[in-house]
């Protein structure tokens, strides 16, 4: 029960989380504490292990070793309790694309065990808030990338989770919708919720997040409040400093037009 005491102030706590794919060590004993009521950004270069880490924290990928605690509940020991507290938006996975957008939200709500009337109300609220009203009766297979992101976010929100884990939530989303999503997430954090978000866009992370972790080669390179990690620089410069710039900055002379 020491974990509980320690985990209570942590919305999410990762302990020595490790995942190996064949010869590649994708995530190497990652420790991360994500305080409740924080807007936490996870940044890292491509292939750093962000998605793998978030998948292990949300019950989508069993870790080789280590723990993922959601408000003190072990995701892999008590999955039902832990999953109920988390809303997930994965990146690059299919959705049940023969359903319409509205049906997909209903499905997510019913799978979370919500009663029918609640699902109906929340579905309509979410479609309106994410500007998907017109798309609510269109099949998800006909959605653009940005609309798919938005409907995925709606599915993650429908059961009013305590922790939101979002993999690249703003990718391919237009500025107007991005503004709407930003407002929803900021209000969610202001009301006591926790958002964990991965992103490649440093400016976005600086603007939204109060905490940030830089992940590279399966390790946490730096983590803490935004100011601690930035250490006086801007985030992008600090990020490049931590993960290292491209070694061979070759000049593509043949690409020049004149």
């Amino acid at each position: 029960m020491t974990q509980l005491g320690e985990g209570r102030t942590q919305a999410m706590a990762l302990r020595a989380l490790t995942k190996r794919f064949g010869a590649t060590l994708a995530v190497d004993r990652i420790d991360l504490d994500i305080p409740t009521h924080s807007f936490y950004g996870v940044v890292g270069p491509n292939g750093a292990g962000k998605t793998t880490t978030l998948s292990m924290a949300t019950g989508l990928l069993r870790p080789d070793s280590g723990q993922a605690l959601i408000h003190g509940v072990d995701m892999w020991r008590e999955p039902s309790r832990a999953k109920a507290m988390v809303g997930v938006l994965p990146d690059g996975l299919h959705s049940f694309d023969r359903l319409t957008g509205g049906e997909l939200i209903s499905y997510a709500g019913l799978m979370r065990g919500l009663p029918k009337e609640t699902v109906r109300e929340r579905r309509d609220d979410l479609l309106a808030a994410l500007d998907l009203d017109a798309a609510g009766s269109t099949l998800v297979t006909d959605y653009s990338a940005g609309m798919t992101k938005k409907i995925g976010l709606a599915c993650a929100l429908v059961h009013a989770p305590r922790v939101l884990v979002l993999d690249e939530p703003f990718e391919a989303v237009d500025p107007v919708s991005a503004g709407a999503i930003r407002r929803i997430l900021q209000e969610f954090v202001a009301s006591g919720g926790t958002v964990v978000m991965s992103s490649h866009v440093m400016a976005l992370v600086e603007r939204l997040c109060d905490h940030v972790a830089v992940v590279g080669h399966g390790h946490v390179l730096a983590a803490g409040t935004l100011d601690e990690v930035r250490a006086g620089q801007d985030l992008e410069a600090r990020f490049v400093g931590l993960v290292g710039d491209i070694a061979d900055q070759r000049d593509l002379a043949w690409l020049r037009q004149s």
Binding site: T58, P79, K83, A84, L93, S95, M111, R112
Partner: peptide, 9 residues
Amino acid sequence: ALWLDIVSG
């Protein structure tokens, strides 16, 4: 797409 079934509990 079965991620949605898995994360639901």
